[in-house]
Design a protein around this nucleic acid. Structure first.
Lengths: 224, 224, 224, 224
DNA sequence: TATGAATGAGACTTCATTCAT
DNA sequence: AATGAATGAAGTCTCATTCAT
């Protein structure tokens, strides 16, 4: 037996490399098939390794899925946070950058986003997913509270609204990637601008209204 | 112990009653566990009937899921459409009524909404789910196109944004029901007004801008 | 409510008529699907009655199948026995008539034959079927012992051979009904003659040989 | 207790060994219970392995059954064909050797024969079973056509008769193994000779008759 | 370390059988 | 007498997980 890699299937790799291999495959498969629909066989095949190795590096199916969730959520949050920058800058500029980063991250992490937002909100990971989502919403709430000069408790529902709106827009775009973009700017930037066009004026108007009577500041409150 | 339902087993019921029992249970279970995660055993247990009865009244798991999808989508769409009223009325009034009906439906049909919108759009029902989702969003797009005087294709992404924002707000509220509502008006109405406060000004502003330069109508387009 | 049969599904019939209805349907279904493959639903549907009625008139599935076996075996044996006639007549003439009756019975009782010989020889009714077959073989053994003037114990294996040969021929014919028959005589008669052409000379020759050395009377015993 | 097979569970075997184990068990169970009556549980238990292993090595129930059919048919046909030898030899000698091989195979492959010949020829395997049966009977028909100097189409019903007769004789013998055999020769050889004693003279006589008037060559054609 | 081989548990589905009308 | 409605039990098949090499 020579010292060369005599059998290609038995290639020894550094543990962290193998772990990333497995996680990448898992994210891909989970995003395509959902948690229950995905099989460990499929993950192993996608990673190009044997099934026991998936267990060695990824743990049980539940653990593997949780690891996917966390890694993808961390990536997303990191991207948004670092784009938002320090609290000193103009708040709406920070929001704009954060939104652009958010939509941009979807382009490069589409599978991760799907795992986080389309597959896992039901089933045994609802709680885990909710906690991860909360981290994102709270980042948005911080930005808005800072920008509007209102208490965080007041900003919270608007943050949920904003994040929900972003999700809705993102889903539409991911379902039909050619529909957005004018061919000049980055699609992610276009999406961020579309979103701001819808919610920007409303958010600005909120700065002038008292927290309790926000609804009455709407221009469509004529009825009843 | 009353004289009613002396023995739970072997109760003869009219077929349509049983069918609704089964469908209700199925919607509940599917919404909690997802399609793959839900078991026919769980549906039967939730409905309080035996498993074969689920097959008699709901057909196979696929058929049962499809039936759930269609019933819930029809219910939701009916509620929103009848609330929106005829096209002759003032557009923003129609939108307001539609939104109120939408939030109202979300609170009474939470599970149905979850089945429709929080399920994997991958798998064997992708087409079906997409078609049903489209019907709902397109109703919103019709309203907005009518109200804004813009082509439907332009209104579509804003409709997705609007629906997503409504979801985000509803999720927040359903997770903490005491947080919204002033104790006077219906919570659903309060939510509708909050949403309009955020998106109303932006939507109005869109009426003046051309589709391509929507983003530039935002007051935060200073950067870059 | 008049005294007329207001509902056609609730027609009261004499028990023996119903029983025959059910048995006929059962024979048909069992012959087509086999014991395990046949469902009580199918039997009920074929009989044009409801399933509980099948249980009332036919008993459990096992009992129903046993009843089918016995009725069909009795019919077959009756036909053969009455054709064979009394022991006084010329033995080979009796055999010939019996064989013709046998093949003729297959034409009119094809389903019954299938149930008896093609479906039931495996499974939980093997013993029952064997007993019924034995009755037929023993009828043949009686005929042969009588005709050849040999003890019944000696005739028995030849009776098995004869019945097996008849089965083989019958199976072939039933699988391809157009293959037999010259267009003039009854197909059943042609089959009987074919069988006699094969086994007749051998049986006659056995009359002259001793029981122990039958094999040596063969003209092909040259080897070894 | 020897040192062998210390623990029955979790034994690693070569795939081809396991596959034969599974097939053997399947043939046994199918022959005893029929296709519908046999359960995969029973096959697994008979093979002494777990149920998933049956699926790994045998595929679905349909595939497993088909594999049984083919293996047993091949075995049987191989045995008979190699015993029959080349066409150049004396026809009746070939027939004799083939019959001996046939009876020998019946005694060592009883279950396989049962699977092939005592199963419902209805159901999803009708075509497959018929084709395999035909191969065996046609081998006999070839031998007979060769030996008698008649066209194969003429020989075919006689081949069915011959095979049926062999089955009848074999059934009788296998039901009462002490009844046949003189204690000197192989029982299978004795059975072959008994069969030839019955059908040999008839077959020889057929050589002189034309196909249409075979029946009239019988010595019992006096009636009608 | 890495894997081929094996299995316990559970899912979907159907069927024989029986109650309540 | 007759039936629509209902269910316990069993069957096929898959999957997460682990042993033995």
């Amino acid at each position: 037996m020579t010292s060369e890699t005599s059998r290609p299937g038995r290639q020894r790799l550094a543990p962290e490399v193998r772990r990333r291999q497995v996680l990448d495959a898992a994210v891909a498969v989970f995003s395509e098939e959902g948690f229950h629909g995905a099989s460990m066989d499929a993950v192993a095949a996608r990673a190009g390794v044997s099934k026991p190795l998936v267990y060695v590096h990824g743990g049980s199916k539940d653990e593997l899925f949780a690891a996917c969730l966390h890694r993808e959520a961390d990536r997303l949050l990191d991207a948004v946070q670092s784009a938002a920058g320090a609290p000193g800058e103009a708040p709406l500029v920070r929001l704009r950058r954060a939104l652009r980063a958010f939509f941009h991250a979807l382009t490069t992490q589409r599978a991760g986003w799907t795992v986080l937002y389309r597959q896992a909100s039901t089933g045994p990971f609802a709680g885990e997913v909710d906690a991860l989502r909360r981290r994102i919403v709270e980042e948005a709430a911080d930005l808005m509270a800072d920008g509007l000069g209102v208490p965080r408790a007041v900003a919270l529902p608007y943050a949920h609204t904003l994040v929900g709106a972003a999700e809705g827009l993102a889903d539409w775009w991911l379902g039909d990637p050619d529909a957005a973009g004018d061919g000049v700017a980055e699609p992610a930037d276009v999406l961020a601008d579309m979103l701001l066009a819808v919610v920007g004026p409303g958010i600005e108007a909120l700065t002038n209204g008292s927290s309790g009577s926000i609804a009455s500041s709407s221009s469509v409150s004529g009825e009843r």
